[in-house]
């Protein structure tokens, strides 16, 4: 019974959202507002159950983790954002989270985004037994990366053999990349629709398995 009512309610709201394709209407607006309230309400419950209760209140009331009062009070300073005269106090927790986050992220970001990528861009063009399309692919990959980097380098005018030709090749490579991304984006969007059709035809109407 619970599931059946749930699926009918879900189907109603699914169709309510699709009604927007024909015309904007009050049921769509209702659904649009509900989703904001529910998602934030859900997050509130989650934060209370997973952080505030087990990581702050319980240890504090157990009496052996008084030090946790510091992050607790620091977090509470966010409330001052709504009191104009002392709103500047809300910068303290933001500063704590941001500063430390930036520091922690720095060496790891350097590794993940830069060092590993540079290392991986230096591959042998040819190894014995490699088919021609892989050899050609490696050439495209290595010189394509360089050319695309030249295209994004705006400190020098894109003229001459190195910067001019380089940036021209670069934009071609980038366009191939963006084309692939567009193709995948279409695929992704259709997949999301497929999910809903499966819900309507399968879970709700039982027309498909």
């Amino acid at each position: 019974m619970y599931d059946t009512i749930g699926i009918w309610v879900g189907a109603f709201f699914t169709l309510a959202i699709y009604s927007f394709l024909y015309k904007e209407n009050p049921v769509y607006r209702l659904a649009e507002h509900l989703v904001v309230g529910i998602s934030l309400g859900y997050t509130m419950v989650l934060i209370y159950n997973t952080v505030i209760l087990p990581k702050l209140l319980e240890p504090l009331f157990a009496g052996n983790h008084w030090i946790l009062i510091i992050p607790g009070l620091l977090g509470l300073l966010y409330i001052t954002r709504f009191i104009p005269s002392i709103a500047w106090l809300s910068r303290y927790p933001i500063a704590f989270i941001m500063g430390t986050g930036m520091g922690i992220g720095f060496p790891l970001t350097m590794k993940a985004y830069v060092l590993r990528q540079l290392e991986a861009a230096m591959v042998p063009l040819y190894e014995s037994g490699m088919p021609w399309y892989e050899v050609f692919g490696n050439i495209v990959m290595i010189f394509g990366t360089l050319a695309a980097l030249i295209y994004f380098f705006f400190s020098k005018p894109h003229k001459g053999l190195f910067f001019g030709t380089g940036s021209k090749i670069g934009i071609w490579v980038i366009m191939l990349g963006f084309g692939a991304t567009f193709g995948f984006t279409v695929m992704g969007r259709i997949s999301l629709l497929i999910g809903r059709i499966q819900y309507l035809l399968g879970d709700w109407l039982h027309l498909i398995e």
Binding site: M98, G99, M102, G103, G105, F106, T109, M110, A112, Y113, V114, Q117, L118, A120, A121, Y133, F136, G137, N138, V140, M141, I142, F143, G144, T145, A147, A148, L149, Y151, F152, G170, V173, I174, L176, G177, F178, G179, A180, T181
Partner: peptide, 30 residues
């Protein structure tokens, strides 16, 4: 082939740009 080579080249160039950008922003904020 497009995904594994030219697409990879373009995305790696963007990734390097984003990476350097993030590092610079991190330092600027710190």
């Amino acid at each position: 082939w497009i995904l594994r080579y030219p697409n990879l080249a373009a995305k790696r160039a963007i990734m390097l740009g984003v990476g350097f950008g993030m590092l610079a922003t991190n330092l600027k904020i710190i």
